[in-house]
């Protein structure tokens, strides 16, 4: 058994080794968080010339007035769709690539590519392909009688950003699933096959339960991604429209804070986001880390 902890005799060296990391965390994470927390308790004009302490007023206004609750709901829906879609597609592709054996390598390489695409670039590409005026896919859809216009149709706008967001995450999920599948002992699968379990039966009764820890891990990662890393995608495709139908939480922060210079409400929203990401991280630490046995 390998000792889990390396212990130092004195505290000087470990502190010195930790110092750079602590400094980075303090300057780039804790300090801004503190500033945002403070800002969220004030009402101020754009230039910060007049600051009035208002306590929790910014939070109250968010939760009891206006459309922030709708934004929360929308973000949940979006994140849910992206997660389910990218997990399902990632798993199916992984199972298929895994069954190909050595010849599956080329597919593996190809499928990982989308992950290397920056969200903004992916957004521009999707926006172009589906552009109501000049998009090639829009033209193709028109031939089969679908009048695609995500500029006006909120359902189509949501579909577009869900697809675009999931696309990137499919590659990530695929990688992890493939690794998980390859870790399943061949003998287990062969035994099941001998017991006359078909591929579908094997997938549901054997593979899915066995890779559950991976699924749980990916669930958290995908949710975090959908909630927080999709800003660039939305800003390059729908700008949160039509109406507010694709304005999710991060985009609302940007609109209120950076477009409208309403720093108080924007700071309050970022605090709510912070709580959310904190909760997701807790889930990851308590559930996922405990269950996965390395």
């Amino acid at each position: 058994m390998i000792a889990k902890r390396v212990t130092f005799k004195r505290t000087g060296l470990p502190l010195a080794l930790l110092a750079p990391q602590l400094a980075v965390t303090g300057i780039f994470f804790l300090w801004p968080t503190f500033v945002a927390l403070k800002q969220s308790l004030y009402r101020s004009d754009a230039f910060g010339l007049r600051q009035v302490f208002t306590g929790l007023e910014n939070y109250r206004a968010l939760l009891f007035h206006g459309n922030y609750l709708a934004t929360l709901e929308r973000s949940g829906f979006f994140a849910g769709c992206v997660t389910v879609l990218s997990l399902a597609v990632g798993l199916v592709l992984a199972v298929m690539a895994d069954s190909l054996g050595r010849s599956g390598r080329i597919w593996q390489a190809l499928l990982v590519w989308p992950y290397a695409l920056a969200p903004a670039v992916a957004g521009v590409l999707w926006a172009y392909m589906f552009d109501p005026a000049i998009g090639p896919i829009t033209h193709a859809l028109a031939h089969i009688g679908i009048d695609w216009n995500h500029v006006l149709n909120s359902g189509e706008a949501m579909t577009l950003i869900v697809m675009a967001a999931a696309m990137k995450q499919v590659a990530y999920n695929f990688l992890f699933y493939l690794a998980a599948l390859q870790a399943i002992p061949k003998s287990l699968m062969e035994a099941a096959a001998l017991d006359a379990a078909g591929p579908v039966r094997r997938l549901f009764s054997l593979i899915i339960p066995l890779i559950a820890p991976t699924t749980l891990f990916l669930l958290v990662v995908d949710l975090t991604y959908a909630f927080f890393d999709t800003f660039g995608l939305i800003d390059s495709t729908t700008y949160g429209g039509p109406g507010n139908s694709t304005t999710i939480m991060v985009y609302q922060v940007y609109k209120d804070g950076f477009i409208d210079q309403r720093f108080g409400p924007a700071a309050a929203q970022s605090m709510i986001l912070l709580l959310l990401v904190g909760a997701l991280t807790m889930v990851q630490f308590t559930l996922v880390e405990r269950r996965i046995d390395y």
């Binding site: 500029v151 006006l152 149709n153 909120s154 429209g241 039509p242 109406g243 507010n244």
Partner: peptide
């Protein structure tokens, strides 16, 4: 513009 979009749609 958001409201106009909803009206036009």
């Amino acid at each position: 513009e958001g409201n106009l979009e909803q009206v036009v749609a």
